[in-house]
Structure formats: structure tokens, C-alpha cells
Simulated scan of single mutants.
Amino acid sequence: MIKKIDHLGIAVTDLAEAIEIYRKIGLEFVGTEVVDEQKVETAFFRVGESYFELLAATDPSSPIAKFIDKNGGRMHHIALAVDDVEAEIGRLQAQGFEMIDSAPRRGAHGNLIAFMHPKATKGTLLEICAKCH
């Protein structure tokens, strides 16, 4: 079951510069984390009970680096909090939605995540995550 929007993922070319921008906006900075499996460094900002997640590539072969090469820095994904990622993958697949991940994988903070293919939503990359924050 989808509980809430957990975070909005924003691809950035320069993490330090982006952190300063979002601090100046007045958002509450939570911290940074390198997610080796995803080849990204993240920075989180609290916005009420949701977050902005800034994503910068740590390797030119990472999905975020490829996204930025194609699209520039901009909104990347919307993450939806769920109780059980594996069950949600099954439910979505049963509804006919194409998933990028057929099994959960580890994301920031060691949380379980999975992505729906943007074709399934006519262009929006959705992430489902459990125990996000």
C-alpha cells in the first residue's frame, strides 16, 4: 500500500553547489551519503514529512551520469513510501505495470527500493521504497 510521497529525486551536476542553493532556499539539510551500489552521492533536505534528494554521479557509467548527459540536471524521480517493496512489486506487476526492478535492491540509508519503468506511467520515473526515512 502506498503511504505517502517520501522524496523527490533531483539529478545535479555539482552536489556542493546544489547543496548551497537548497540551503539558501531555506530547506533543512539532513546530510549526505555515498551509495556505492548506485554510483551516486546523495544529499537530503527535509520538507515537512517529505524530502528532496539531490543525486550526483560518482562514476561516469552510473545511471544518474547517463541521465544528466541526456537531460541535464533536473527532476529525476518521485519516491513513494510503502510498507513492503516486494509485495508492491508483485501488486504493480499484476496490474500490468512494467518494473525496472523485479526484486528490491538497496538505496540510500540501506533502504529497500525498486523502480517502475517510466513507460508504465507515460514518462515519470517512480521509485517505491520501504523504511525510507
Rank of each mutant, 00 (worst) to 15 (best):
N111S: 15
E41G: 01
M116N: 07
T42C: 10
V30T: 11
Q95T: 13
G72S: 06
A65E: 07
A103W: 11
A43K: 00
C129I: 15
R23Y: 06
Y51G: 02
V35E: 04
I21M: 13
H133Y: 15
V40H: 01
A16Q: 15
G123F: 08
K66M: 12
M99T: 04
G110S: 03
D69P: 09
T32G: 07
L125R: 06
F52D: 02
K122V: 12
S50C: 10
A79C: 10
P63G: 12
A103L: 15
V12K: 01
V82F: 02
E49S: 15
E49M: 13
Y22K: 03
D84L: 05
A114K: 00
H7Q: 06
A57T: 05
A65H: 07
L54M: 09
K3I: 14
V85C: 04
L15D: 00
G90N: 12
P118N: 09
T13V: 14
R74K: 15
K24E: 11
H76C: 07
D36M: 13
K119W: 10
D59K: 09
E98M: 12
I100D: 08
Y51H: 10
H109M: 14
V40Q: 00
E86A: 13
A94C: 08
A103N: 13
I128K: 04
E98N: 09
E41A: 05
E41P: 04
G96M: 08
G73Y: 02
G26K: 04
V40L: 08
S102I: 14
T124M: 15
L27V: 07
I89R: 02
P104S: 06
M116Q: 10
A108S: 06
G26E: 06
K119H: 10
S102G: 15
F97Y: 14
F29V: 03
